[in-house]
Amino acid sequence: MSAAALDATGLSAGYGPFQALFDLTLHAPAGSRTAIVGANGAGKSTLLRAILGQVTVTGGDIAFDGRSLRGVRPHRRAKAGIALVPEGRHVFGDMSVADNLRVGAHLGRSGRWDLDAVLGAFPLLAELLDRPAGVLSGGQKQALAIGRALMANPRVLLLDEVSLGLAPIVVRDLYASVAEIAATGTTVVVVEQDLTQALGFADHVHCLLEGRIVLSGSPDELSLDEIRDAYFGVRVA
């Protein structure tokens, strides 16, 4: 399945009365690697949940492969080819690792990712297949969560804070796998607090502050200082 483009236009979204995103416009072309950086509470996770239809969108629109997602329920968006690796991993702890991966393949979308391919990308999971996912370590859970998302053969893969709480070496391995995934032609959007990781991975970076994009560009165009200023809310002229 080919990669697809993701476009948010004038997006406003939030939880009940609390608005987290304000008139946000973002374009992720098919096959691109996008990183969204920003401090805690900047609205990064809300943006990803809005793309999946799991928060209330109060204005603007999101288009997937050129088609509006307005009114499309979350499981239908997954069916269209959007996969999210949620913050906090959210593996199904009572189910075995193998069953977690099988649930990932619930839709039966065909493509290059199947059980063997996922175990090839994350060899550490191979020995754990019969374990309940709840007992895995943080890094193992993260690998499982990504593997589970891949099982759906998504056209767009969204990763939320995959490095959070993991050892640097584990993070490096994970990002190496994610880069391979991106190389297969999947559009990848990562939300990341670790600037070095984000800049090393992405071909396009957006900095989010209080629900708005305050800085965008390719990692070559942007200096680390510029991004830090945007990150902490020091206004760039």
Binding site: P86, H90, G93, V103, H106, A152
Partner: peptide, 24 residues
């Protein structure tokens, strides 16, 4: 079964199950 796994996934965490394309 596929249905059974979807059922257990929904029972444990319906919001995450939606991400797998499961209609809770």
């Amino acid at each position: 079964t596929r249905f059974g796994r979807a059922f257990r996934a929904t029972a444990e965490d319906s919001r995450t199950a939606q991400l797998m394309g499961i209609d809770d």
